[in-house]
Design a protein around this nucleic acid. Sequence first.
DNA 1: TTGAAAGCGCTAACAG
DNA 2: CTGTTAGCGCTTTCAA
Lengths: 361, 361
Amino acid sequence: MSRPSPHDPHHLAGASSNSPSSRSRASPGVSKDISIDDVAEQAGVSVATVSRVLNGHSNVRAETRERVLAAIETSGYRVNELARNLRTAESRLLLTMVPNFGNPFYADIVRGIDSVARQHGYFMLLCDTGADPGRERSYFEMLRRRRADGAICLDPAAAQQALSEELHTLPWVACCEFDADVGVPYVGIDNYRAAGDAVLHLLSRGHTRIALINSGDGYLYAQQRERGYQDALHNAGIAPDPRWRMHLDSLDYEAGAFAAASLMAQADPPTAIFAVSDTLAIGVIKGLRSVGKRVPDDVAVVGFDDISLAAQIDPPLTTIAQPMRELGETAARQLLKRLANRSANVPGVLLPHRLIVRGSA
Amino acid sequence: MSRPSPHDPHHLAGASSNSPSSRSRASPGVSKDISIDDVAEQAGVSVATVSRVLNGHSNVRAETRERVLAAIETSGYRVNELARNLRTAESRLLLTMVPNFGNPFYADIVRGIDSVARQHGYFMLLCDTGADPGRERSYFEMLRRRRADGAICLDPAAAQQALSEELHTLPWVACCEFDADVGVPYVGIDNYRAAGDAVLHLLSRGHTRIALINSGDGYLYAQQRERGYQDALHNAGIAPDPRWRMHLDSLDYEAGAFAAASLMAQADPPTAIFAVSDTLAIGVIKGLRSVGKRVPDDVAVVGFDDISLAAQIDPPLTTIAQPMRELGETAARQLLKRLANRSANVPGVLLPHRLIVRGSA
DNA sequence: TTGAAAGCGCTAACAG
DNA sequence: CTGTTAGCGCTTTCAA
């Protein structure tokens, strides 16, 4: 998208006008709306011509274009995108649904989406669904009502599936949380292998009593990571104690702290903990400390995601890094591709993760 | 907004239709769009009547209404909001501009805005400006182009002012970061008094060598808190050492850590630090630890905001709490008020802060 | 209680 | 290169 386009947010018709004439026909307080007709009249051309210069068409004589531009400038005209959108049958809005935007994990993903969207002349609407299928549905409904052109959904697969029968025809892609078999384009990482890598690291440090602090079952990634954890342990000839597997319904710091403390209260407590998210892991470290355990000396901790805070805590968190920004960018590009060609076959894509070894394990 | 409204996102015309007839006229892959005309025809009424039932008008005979509803249901019709928006000349979209949505401080504010917006049939578009006046301008431009009806801006006052001449006529309100004299409706807290309260607390703990870690001058709140800090000290008969006042261009953990370390490298280092944001304060604690200082024994730390993480770190952070959720809700209500009545006089409002004493000071 | 008809402001054939 | 014109799909007078 290199040439100036009508959808480029930076292509501001008359935006630099500070002249008082911008409000030439203003009645007290309210500035009267100027339409394309006014501009046409002022420039002595037809609305079609104005529309052409607005949209950067080349078939306008330079001199005419200047005249139109001047009229736009002095009148302070702004395109009415409501009208444009109706006419072109697109809203140029993309939805991004997250279960909880207080979770720092989403920040960079969302930035990635936003940046690609803007590059292509779209705006991104961030929607907090609270992982509630009802809320989620109401956002998908925006697609049907043409308030948005497409969506990227990071909600739990469970919530997605609750709607899936009716959702197949809608233009959206799943991000981070997806069911490869469901036929919706997706982008994410290989959660199974990533969890395995985390366990392998702990194993290589000599741990055998390794606990898993997982989130609830609504998330597919949770199941994938759990299988990765179990298989890695089995492959090492270790039969994991089921008491060491915890399932939490929250990713809050508190939840992690609580889980860690209750793990330590067991008879033969684990010497290492793999938490499926950094927020959880940070809580775990706090919980450990509160019951007098040192990290990593008494208990090693590995997290997941590599949020920016992970490097800041004490001790710095060893974790599996997800390429958040790329995840978002890729998802956005997939969606755009689907929008450009509704029948395009957009495949699922898996991006690489990597283990970041810091102080906690 | 108690009666079903055309703008209630939960008022989903025909949303519960799962019948295959929803795609009755579908060609392979693409489902043909159904318009209000189709519904009218199918129900044997005029489009005007369909429109009336869509909008919950009472002047439709019950039997007719049923017929229309049935037609909507079986056809799987969805209102085209692009058309509706053009006709009613509103987009039902509100913008929220934040300088950096990775900053957890904004999470609850944004939730507050979102919740009030949704209650009133608006959607909220979250915009990350990066505190860049250019980006900010492009979002304000959306108002002029009618893509959004109003905006709430949390950007630095400096960025707002860069645009202020042209922005007076636009429907927006400033939140948290505002210049009361500029004539734009605002909501925030009394930063001057809040900073004073933080200092008073440190004073009451016996500290006299109190440092200030502040953000850059672009933020008005920074100046207000700095004055609060200075005056509180002066009133206690203390002349603060200028070397103890630091100005950072970032609110990152890293920045706080670095500032703390360099403070401690001074000849007569302070025994207490007041950081103007919790993220900074968390970094400060880490920085202190990295140079071998204990908190609060060697150095006391007070933060600002009371983000959820504040209670989780070690030691738990003493801080000034802002009523984030209420700030957002109030800002949204102010904006809505202004939208409902363009000439309404919407005053600025200050919400109460409070000191939360935890372990760090 | 209902319908006919006039646009909302714009884009895109189509014709010149 | 430019203008005329027909809508996009909806809401809303105005009349009946």
